[in-house]
Design a protein around this nucleic acid. Sequence first.
DNA 1: GCGTGTGAAGGGTTTCACAGCA
DNA 2: TGCTGTGAAACCCTTCACACGC
Lengths: 213, 213
Amino acid sequence: MNEAVNKEKKISDVVIPRILNYLKVVQQLEKENKTTILSEELSRITNTSAVLIRKDLANFGKIGQPGTGYDVSRLKSYLLDIIGGKEMSNLAVVGVGNLGSALLNYKGFEEEGLKFVAAFDKQEGKIGRICGNVIVEHIDNMGESIKNNNVHIGIITVPSNVAQAVAEKLVGAGVYSILNFSHVALLAPPEVTVRNVDLAIELKALRYFSVNR
Amino acid sequence: MNEAVNKEKKISDVVIPRILNYLKVVQQLEKENKTTILSEELSRITNTSAVLIRKDLANFGKIGQPGTGYDVSRLKSYLLDIIGGKEMSNLAVVGVGNLGSALLNYKGFEEEGLKFVAAFDKQEGKIGRICGNVIVEHIDNMGESIKNNNVHIGIITVPSNVAQAVAEKLVGAGVYSILNFSHVALLAPPEVTVRNVDLAIELKALRYFSVNR
DNA sequence: GCGTGTGAAGGGTTTCACAGCA
DNA sequence: TGCTGTGAAACCCTTCACACGC
């Protein structure tokens, strides 16, 4: 634990993804045995202005060395402290269709501290199947299973028309973080954090921005 | 085409996803034969403040009826004009793994004006397979196939270590819009628009925000 | 009266210019 | 000299309060 890291600071919605990006790059650099990084280099890699990077980092204490840059392993350790990325998070997938099973079978999450511990579907044919490291359970088991497996984050990959019902079930089972892949906006109580990944919207935004330079 | 729509206005990064959200809801409302919508109702459905919605919409002309609200079909047509969502966009997937084939097999895109026209992989076993509506081609065919199929958007679902090479190949073949699912930041020339969907970052951000209320 | 449209205020984020330290 | 850290300025986005039109 780094004593100097100022943990009191609330970090805003905009900054967190950037910090996570810096962390990603820094972890990569460490693997490449690079020991030092300049804000200028980080800027090129992350498409973020160098000043902004320095501002972001300086918020948590004087992490860099003027004239030299940032020590990679020190920076990594600071970022991990800031973001709290050292504990494992338990994930549950609801809806084992194409997307759901793609997620469950993706091998890269575990080393990122993200672990699938349960998966649910309502289609009888899928119940009992092994997908990635978990056995697919019936959705009626959700409440109990989520508590037993200590699920932190629920991932919704069901068709849009049942997404809201699933969200409510997740919340009812005590899940306060939801990643929503369905194409509808979820109504959830304020204590629940929802992030939406709407691929149709991503693609259309991409189209818009490329047409309008 | 609506004459009154002010197309000169550049719309910012923040606004586009909101507009696309409004459009999504409005299209749904039209299907339900609702003829009129208030900014207040749209606000509840989209989790966006009503004033902000009015501001967003008023940017393009006086679309609403004071005292009455917005005419649903008129609003839809305006939004489509603004966002340019009337033409079909041709998509190509590079990397037909779990995620790639999940995307190819998703049936909802076509009615959104998004159509897969090609898919590429380098694994021999996958070449020639039918995935969704396309036949998987060898990645060496990419340049030619992309031109023949008039691909607008490239979707990268290959492992991180080859993502950069794939991106360069896409750009070389004339694709200026890339949706990147890999866990690395792509370096691309400024005329190329890249959007990143990094699921590990989404999940970690979710974790951060739920821990820090 | 009711709901949209809008100038002005407010808040937050990014950039600028430069101070300070190795 | 080179690069980080930082107060001040600039910018952008959101909210407020209210004017205007049906």
